[in-house]
Amino acid sequence: MSGRRSSGRRPGASTTREELIDAARQEFSEHGVTGATTRRIAARAGVDPGMIRHHFGSKAGLWQAALELPVEPGRFLAAARTAPHDEVARVMLATLLRGWDSPLGGAFRAVIRSAVQDPVYADRAREFLLARAIMPVVRRVAPEAQGAAADPAVLAERASLAASQVTGLVLARYILRIEPLASAEHDWILDRIAPTVQGYLTGPLAGAPDPRS
């Protein structure tokens, strides 16, 4: 593993802690919180398993630290909050894809995988996807949000439908590895999925009156 030691303490408490967090993000993204083991996490980090207990108390404590994303979702999706209304879905998905395919991607994928495996962790995924990422975009671009009295139920419907596409994309591309989606270039994905998400964000909803009419 790139010259890392399989055991023994690394110099510097902060370095060891960050190594464990990085390793845990990889482990949780691959195996979820249920399948991950502290022994494998420690081996990835090149430290003794006792360092997990020393720094985090338990695997659950390490999970919490690993899912403290280095980038605040609001800042991460800032581009989607300023994009033209008719381009917001493509901008949002492009930003997410870049994040998922970056060194930060393990933390994002760990949120989804852990939520699927254990309902206890689903609140974290919902809070990230809805309250902190998608809902602020919905409040900005949804037709219902442009009037004086936006309907919270309609905004929640739009956010949940957009979230269904986002989570489905994560599961299919990164966890289930369904081809050709798993290996596709970003533009290929955006051309096929962004129009659907755009419809959920700004288009007419079935059975709901068009607030622009």
Rank of each mutant, 00 (worst) to 15 (best):
A94W: 06
Q117N: 11
S183A: 13
A83G: 08
A182Y: 14
P195C: 12
Q64M: 11
P84T: 06
L96A: 04
T37W: 08
S114V: 07
L130V: 15
L77R: 06
T95Y: 01
A110G: 08
A89F: 00
V88G: 03
A110P: 01
A145S: 14
L205C: 09
R212G: 03
V197G: 15
Y121E: 13
Y200A: 07
I175G: 01
A23S: 08
K59N: 01
H186C: 11
L129K: 03
S114W: 00
H54P: 07
A94D: 14
E144W: 15
I21L: 10
A142E: 03
E18A: 13
I189D: 01
A131W: 08
G207E: 07
R10N: 06
A142S: 15
R75Q: 09
L67C: 09
V197M: 15
A125L: 14
G106K: 05
K59T: 03
M135W: 03
Y121C: 08
R158P: 01
R98V: 05
M92N: 04
D22M: 02
L93Q: 02
A133D: 07
I41F: 02
Q117A: 13
A79F: 07
R124C: 09
V154A: 05
D191N: 00
R81H: 10
A94H: 10
G168Q: 02
P152L: 07
L97F: 10
P136S: 12
P209E: 11
P211G: 10
Q64W: 10
G57D: 13
E144N: 09
I41T: 13
A36V: 03
H54M: 10
A13L: 10
V71A: 10
L130H: 15
E87Q: 15
I21Y: 02
D191A: 02
R173A: 01
E18G: 12
A122D: 08
L161D: 00
L104H: 15
L171M: 10
W188I: 05
V154C: 06
A110N: 02
T95E: 11
A125F: 06
F76S: 14
S14N: 13
L62R: 00
L201M: 11
T95R: 15
L130T: 15
M92I: 09
S160M: 09
L69V: 05
R25G: 03
A145L: 08
E68Y: 04
L69G: 04
I178G: 00
E157R: 05
P211L: 04
F56S: 02
I193P: 11
E27L: 00
R9K: 15
A80P: 07
E27V: 00
A83H: 05
A172L: 10
R17L: 01
E179Q: 08
H55N: 07
M1T: 11
L130K: 14
A80E: 01
A45P: 09
A131T: 13
G147P: 07
V197A: 12
M92Y: 08
R192G: 04
A150V: 06
G207V: 14
R53Q: 12
H85N: 10
L77S: 07
W188S: 08
R81E: 12
R173V: 02
P11A: 14
V166K: 00
S114G: 05
L201G: 10
D101R: 09
M92E: 00
S7E: 13
G203P: 06
I178N: 02
D210C: 02
V170T: 03
V138E: 05
T16E: 14
